[in-house]
Amino acid sequence: MDRILFGDNQFFGVNHASDEKSREQLIKFKSNDSIIKILDLAKIAGVNTFMCTTHDRIANICEHIRKHPADYTSYKIYPCMPYAHKYANAVTELGIMGALKAYMPGNIFSTALKGGMAYLSDDHEKMMELLVDAEMKMFHGIETPVIFLQNVVTDLLLGLKAYGLLAAFHSYIKKKYNAEAGFITMNLPLLSNVLVNLGIKHPIICTSINKEGFRMSGGKCAYEKILAEKKNRVIAMQIFGGGFISPKEAVDYVVSLEGVESILFGASSAGNIQQTISWINKE
C-alpha cells in the first residue's frame, strides 16, 4: 500500500465535524469534473490511490479513468462497500426484505425467486458474495488491489459476533478479485483480536487514529499498544479527529506512530492537499 491514500468523504457531503459544511461540500462537488479536478491535483502531488465508497457517483469517476488510461497508468482505487446510507434509508422505508429486493442485482434476484427466496436468504455467504459483486461492477477494468468492508458493516458483524462472515468476506475478495480484503472499523482493539483468532494474518485495517483519541473505542492507549505489536497493516483515518488540535499537530502525531502503514485523508482544495502531503512526507 502507498503511504498516502486519498479519501472521498469531502465529495459526498460526509463531514463529521459539521452538517453545515457537508451541505456546502455537496454543492461544491455537484459535478463529476469538480471531483476529477481534485483527484488530479492529488495525483500531481504524488497520491496515486483513491479510497472511496461505492457511492453511485463513483461509477462516473471510474468511467472517466477508463476513458483516459494514459492519465492514470499506475492509478489504483480501494473500494469501500457498501455505501451504507443507501441501504439504511431503504431499510427504514421498505424493511430488510424490501431493501434486499431493491438492491439485489435484478437477474440474480429473479433467479432466486425461481428457486425460492429461502434458498438464497439462508445462504448468507452467497448473499454477501452477490452484494459484493453488485458493488464491484462499477470498477471493472480498474486496479482494485484492496477492497474494504465499511465500518458500519464490520462493526455490526463484530457486535453480533458474526465472525464467520468477516472471514468469508476476506476469503471471497482473495478468490474472486485476487485482491486483499480490508476492514474499516471504529473498534480496532476488538476487531484486531477477532481477526487474529480467525487466523487472518496481517489483516489490513483502516481505523480512526488521532491525537485526540476521537472515535478510538477502547481508548487511545489500547490503539497505541496494538500498533506497536505490528500484527496488522493499519491505515489511519480521521487523523484530524474532532477538530480541536491544529492540522500540523494532527499529522505529526500520526506519522510518529510506527505501526501505521498508510495515512488516509481527504481535502477539497489544492492548498490543503499539498500542505498535508508535505507534512506527511517530512517525517
Binding site: 463529521h16 462493526d155 472515535r215 478510538m216 474532532g242
Partner: peptide, 14 residues
C-alpha cells in the same frame, strides 16, 4: 464541535 465534548464509548457502531 461535538468531537470535543462527546464522551467516548467502549464500542462504536452508528
Amino acid at each position: 464541535s461535538v468531537g470535543t465534548i462527546q464522551e467516548p464509548v467502549g464500542f462504536y457502531l452508528r
